[in-house]
Design a protein around this nucleic acid. Structure first.
Length: 292
DNA sequence: TACCAGGAGAGCG
DNA sequence: CGCTCTCATGGT
């Protein structure tokens, strides 16, 4: 039954309470580990909390003792969208129990990442961000996402921020598709600009629908992602895991490859496809949590 | 200044 | 296939 205390859920009418403030009693939830681990790139630490625009709304999250608090700029009718995004229903203890107990390297990693949740992000923004991630560091990815939002994103109600011209959502496919490659390059995207633009146009024109990925089988979803320019195995797996609801996916990047080689193959050089096969078999249904 | 960053795509043998 | 090189840009 997850991290949400049943009494709180009942009292709040299962998340349908109206307003700009909501809090959940959580057993295990680290905002820092969850929002700053490289799965999402839009969150900023502000005055002891975390702020971002998600699902078209400005949101501030803060941890107070056993409570996770959310604050909005405008009232909403319900909170399911945020509970889903944060995956508040995930029972981390149950996830840990389902992962291989005899794996010491994994158990050590789990112990140091207590409270790290996967997120269920918006498919389009997640796809775009990971297309931008190619050969970039996390800080640079954040900057690209922020610049695109500032210049091309939809304005969103939020607290005053004079210097940056207010809060904006990550630009929709349609808004990006209306721009030129030169305008995207001017945001520091480099060779990623034509890739992002091509995918934005594919989505805007209805040739690809990232919101429908969860309806597909894993194989089908991955295949469709890989057909897009700028999307290879790593980016595809990140989108499948962080936005597609496929928890069994284990994205292989340079860091996880390094760790896998160290922990399970004595640091020796191993063919990438062998590492992929090992990860797929070893970690099981919650491989995504193991990877994070 | 040289090197590299949580990849992908093109060009080889 | 599997390997290597290139691709823009900004930060150490």
């Amino acid at each position: 039954m997850g991290c949400v205390e049943p009494a709180a859920a009942v009292r709040a009418g299962r998340g349908n309470r109206q307003g700009t403030f909501r809090r959940w009693r959580v057993a295990e939830y680290s905002l820092e580990l969850t929002l700053d681990c490289g799965q999402a790139f839009g969150w900023t630490p502000v005055a002891g909390g975390w702020e971002a625009v998600i699902m078209g709304r400005w949101v501030r999250l803060e941890r107070r003792g056993a409570w996770l608090e959310a604050r909005l700029a405008e009232p909403v009718a319900g909170w399911d969208w945020l509970e889903s995004y944060l995956r508040l229903g995930d029972d981390l203890a149950a996830v840990r129990r389902a992962l291989p107990a005899e794996d010491r390297a994994l158990q050590t990693a789990l112990a140091s990442c207590r409270g790290l949740h996967l997120l269920r992000q918006e498919p389009w923004e997640c796809l775009a961000a990971f297309i931008l991630s190619a050969n970039k560091q996390i800080g640079q990815i954040r900057r690209m996402v922020a610049t695109l939002s500032q210049r091309f994103g939809e304005p969103v109600a939020g607290p005053l921020r004079e210097r940056e011209g207010g809060w904006r959502a990550f630009p929709s496919p349609e808004r990006l598709a209306a721009r030129s490659e030169a305008e995207l390059r001017a945001c520091g995207l480099g060779f990623r600009a034509p890739r992002l633009l091509a995918v934005a146009r594919a989505v805007a024109e209805g040739r690809f629908d990232p919101w429908r990925l969860p309806e597909l089988s894993l194989g089908e979803a991955r295949e469709r992602l890989l057909a897009l320019p700028g999307v290879g195995p790593k980016v595809a797996d990140c989108v499948l895991l962080f936005a597609g609801g496929f928890d069994e996916v284990f994205p292989l990047d340079v860091w996880t490859l390094r760790v896998l080689r160290e922990a399970y193959f004595g640091g020796k050089r191993v063919p990438l496809r062998r590492l992929a096969a090992f990860a797929a078999g070893h970690f099981g249904a919650h491989a995504g949590y193991a990877q994070q």
